[in-house]
Design a protein around this nucleic acid. Structure first.
Lengths: 237, 237
DNA sequence: ACCTGAACACCGTTCAAGT
DNA sequence: ACCTGAACACCGTTCAAGT
């Protein structure tokens, strides 16, 4: 184990990020920035300050570089968001796909996927239209999930559409997790909306700690049951 | 019918919006701005220039006022988005809820809802967490849909969760409509992702004109069937 | 009450100059 | 190749002054 560097040292790449000394223009020897360091700093910034705090200026500051330096490694802020998204995709739990039945594997995948992105909803508009080529970990997730569907007896031509349907539900549900508790309070309009008001009251009386989880369970189980009927209708082996 | 005003006239409220003459500071007699005019101008701007073109400055320009004048009627840009959202909610097709069976009513509502907001995806993060009190037309939609679920025999305490589940799927699917056609092209990673690549090819070979519609049909029918089983399991009369 | 005009505190991005 | 520093063309929002 090497001795800790003296304060203000610039000798090692590891300490470059924390180095507070001003750097002159020109290419530094250590390699100050790369995509991995940008991703980690962006993620830390988001955890500390939220997505409003993720600005190119703040990101550069966290990495101790000028904002313009970032553009040697990403071509836009959207690229930074893609890096973060792909990092998060690797956190989604796929373990059940080679250990448990299809229903349970989809269930665990879907809950994990929703939970991860419910803390990162500003990424959803990005993921939803992101070509998989730009996100290798996300693509790796699709490979595992596709193989699980194929092995469960899904007809090949329905696999992508089934995954997309589940994913659409997951993205929408991730937003729902972040909704305020009183989102459905009809307020002064209660008398004008008797059916809705009664339904909202009736749900509230159930006293569920997390109403978003009730809706997610309802929809997810319906999708698992409904999509499950596609299995082995054409494809047999 | 009054004679048309002379060019540059500021005599009537009707011509105030189009009036290109400079207005001095102070309160104008006609009432230049209100929420309805702001909503209409915002919607026109979005249709012409997209959501990138919807800035407070551009909106003010379209209404021939200074940007700061808008803040006498809305307290933030988000308020403008809420006005637009609530206007669009009134366009969602609810007609089948008092004319057709529950399944068909939900089907028409869901397709219409998805179609409207697929052209306005930047509103989805706003709607998804928007208290219904702030959006009367959106609340009116929930009232009609809730009544439809109640009349179809849904247990009262499951109505809101069922609607939320459907809505989550609809929001996610609205994004999917806007995805690029080659979103799932694995590119140079094709060999590393054989199951996914085969599934993508197999879907492509089907030659569907709109793949997003295939996924939407699959998920929606699964949800309608699955949620439909909740009917008359508890509630009887 | 509700407008104008000026100002504020930011944004993301570009680019010449430097090593 | 990859950094700095300055500049650009915007943002949303606030507020004093005006009628």
């Amino acid at each position: 184990m090497p001795a800790p560097p003296a304060p203000g040292s610039t000798a090692t790449g590891e300490t470059a990020v924390e180095d507070l000394a001003r750097r002159r223009a020109g290419r530094p020897v250590g390699g100050v920035l790369d995509k991995s360091r940008i991703t980690r700093a962006a993620l830390e910034l988001v955890e500390k300050k939220g997505y409003d705090g993720l600005t190119m200026a703040a990101l550069a500051r966290a990495l101790n570089v000028a904002p313009s330096a970032l553009y040697n490694h990403v071509k836009s802020k959207r690229d930074v968001l893609v890096l973060v998204e792909d990092h998060l995709a690797a956190l989604v739990d796929l373990s059940a796909f080679d250990a448990e039945p299809w229903e349970e594997a989809v269930r665990k995948w879907a809950w994990s996927y929703r939970d991860v992105f419910s803390r990162h909803t500003p990424l959803i508009p990005v993921i939803a239209v992101l070509p998989v080529t730009d996100a290798p970990q996300t693509l790796a997730m699709y490979e595992t999930v596709s193989a699980g569907f194929r092995d469960a007896g899904f007809p090949e031509e329905r696999i992508v559409s089934s995954i997309v349907a589940l994913e659409s539900f997951i993205f929408g549900s991730a937003y729902d997790v972040t909704a305020p508790a009183d989102i459905f309070d009809p307020g002064s309009m209660a008398e004008a909306t008797p059916s809705f008001t009664a339904a909202v009251r009736s749900l509230a009386e159930q006293g569920h700690e997390r109403p978003a989880d009730v809706a997610f369970t309802l929809g997810l189980e319906a999708l698992i049951t409904g999509l499950g009927t596609l299995r082995n209708q054409v494809h047999q082996h």
